[in-house]
């Protein structure tokens, strides 16, 4: 282990902790929320801050312990920003087309639901 300045150690640990807490909350959300569509919200949002915190912690740690800035962690963030909405979209689409059960208080404002179906 290289020695780090104290501030970097504190900052990196705080960021990693924040990331871990949000990751945990996202997973708890998967269990607690009532139906498929609602459960989708937890992992798509909370992983961005969860992974983001860990990534920032990693940047702080490696920038402080080695010479120079370490930024290749940012690539993970870029890929996550690009892929998280798309996977959420595909899951939501699948859920809609299979007509999965929704909690009864979900209000549906679609005028013509068949506009969104692949069935002809």
């Amino acid at each position: 282990m290289e020695t780090l300045p104290a501030w970097a150690e504190w900052l990196a640990s705080a960021l990693i902790l924040i990331g871990a807490i949000f990751g945990l909350i996202g997973s708890v959300g998967l269990v607690r929320l009532p139906d498929f569509m609602a459960r989708l919200h937890a992992p798509t949002k909370n992983t961005t801050l969860g992974v983001g915190g860990v990534i920032l912690g990693s940047i702080v740690y490696f920038s402080a312990s080695q010479q120079g800035l370490s930024l290749h962690e940012l690539l993970i963030a870029i890929f996550l920003f690009l892929t998280a909405p798309i996977s959420a979209h595909l899951l939501a689409k699948a859920g809609l087309h299979l007509e999965l059960k929704r909690v009864s208080r979900t209000r549906d404002y679609r005028d013509r639901p068949e506009q969104y179906s692949d069935r002809d």
Partner: peptide, 9 residues
């Protein structure tokens, strides 16, 4: 999809 409580389905 990334912002508060909404997902594009």
């Amino acid at each position: 999809s990334l912002t508060p409580g909404t997902i594009t389905a």
